[in-house]
Write a protein that binds this DNA or RNA. Structure first.
Lengths: 180, 180
DNA sequence: GCAACCAGTTGCGATTTGCAAGCAGTTGAT
DNA sequence: ATCAACTGCTTGCAAATCGCAACTGGTTGC
């Protein structure tokens, strides 16, 4: 995958697989999009799936190379790096929505980890667009001029859904836990 | 991934990645869905990306294990095996549509290999549903009772788009090639 | 009878993965 | 000023996976 571009084929599915077709890249983007992680350590220690630090470093580097992420210094801490989603990555929201819907239907998901996918599916393209606007504001620094003040932000709707499930589960008997 | 189900997490995105997150599984499903490949050799020798036979055999076995495909003997040839998409796999059509749309927009696709993705995107959920009905008829043996006789089958629309691009390219100067 | 075709399998070097530990710095509290 | 905790990684290494090439046992059509 150098400058002379050694791709296996020019098919859009294949080219996407070449970028995202491994066991970690999509999960990192998911955590940045839906879990609001921006720093290396956040991604490392809050990872549900337990990514290793060398693999995280490698994937972040590749995602930056591919134009999916940008890396910037954190002004509050000389050693911290802030990773941001690019427009290219933000436009994966509909892909995530469809994958989340499919996975929730066909795979043995846990309720609290799939509620957000289900809400996003139910919200449809309109909600996806709204969520992408929120991500642009957060990651690309765009203004909130086009924001609809009457609508609850999508990230808040998703968090509320997650917390409702957790609260119900805690009440039902098990010892509940908060956290993202 | 045994009976005791050792998953990294119950997140729908993660579980999907565990099944499809490699460099070949999605491409095999793509070729079966959009290229109408049903036999081992078809998948092997017509693969745009050049999959190796051992990897193809391994992925087919895993996809059958996961309930994405079924394998049956071909009555016309004692050695031939017919692979069919299951409903679980057919319902990946919207995922493919979104990935194809995203890839076509952001990656260096070739026109003739992305025209089908673009047509599928433009057709929207209505076209995806129609295509899924066609796949159910072809792979699950469902009746064509619900088919709309006024509508050109999706696979035919996609093929027509592909051939139109190829014909134009051939006319424009280069030596064109047919083939799927 | 024989070439072509069928779905894979085998051997093997190269690459990738994943775990554990370590590193050179920075920060904040004492 | 000191020190523990935290920062984004890097390194070493064993295990698993990948991908190429050759090969297998059997079937089919001519």
């Amino acid at each position: 995958m150098d400058a002379v571009s050694e791709h296996r084929s020019g098919c859009p599915i294949n080219l996407t697989v070449e970028i995202l077709g491994d066991r970690w890249s999509l999960l990192i983007l998911r955590d940045m999009m839906f879990g609001n992680r921006r720093h290396f350590r956040e991604l490392l220690t809050n990872s549900q799936e337990g990514i290793a630090s060398n693999i995280l470093a490698d994937r972040l580097r590749k995602l930056v190379e591919q134009g999916m992420l940008t890396r910037a210094d954190d002004p509050t801490h000389k050693q911290k790096a802030i990773y941001s989603l690019t427009e290219k990555a933000i436009e994966l929201v509909p892909v995530f929505a469809q994958i989340g819907a499919w996975g929730s239907k066909w795979l043995p998901v846990s309720e609290e980890l799939s509620i957000r996918a289900i809400l996003l599916e139910q919200g449809g393209p309109r909600m996806w667009e709204q969520f992408m606007r929120e991500l642009r504001r957060e990651h690309l620094g765009e203004s909130a001029a086009d924001a609809d003040p009457d609508e609850l932000p999508v990230w808040m709707q998703l968090r509320a859904g997650y917390e409702a499930v957790m609260a119900r589960k805690a009440g039902e008997g098990g010892a509940g836990q908060t956290g993202d």
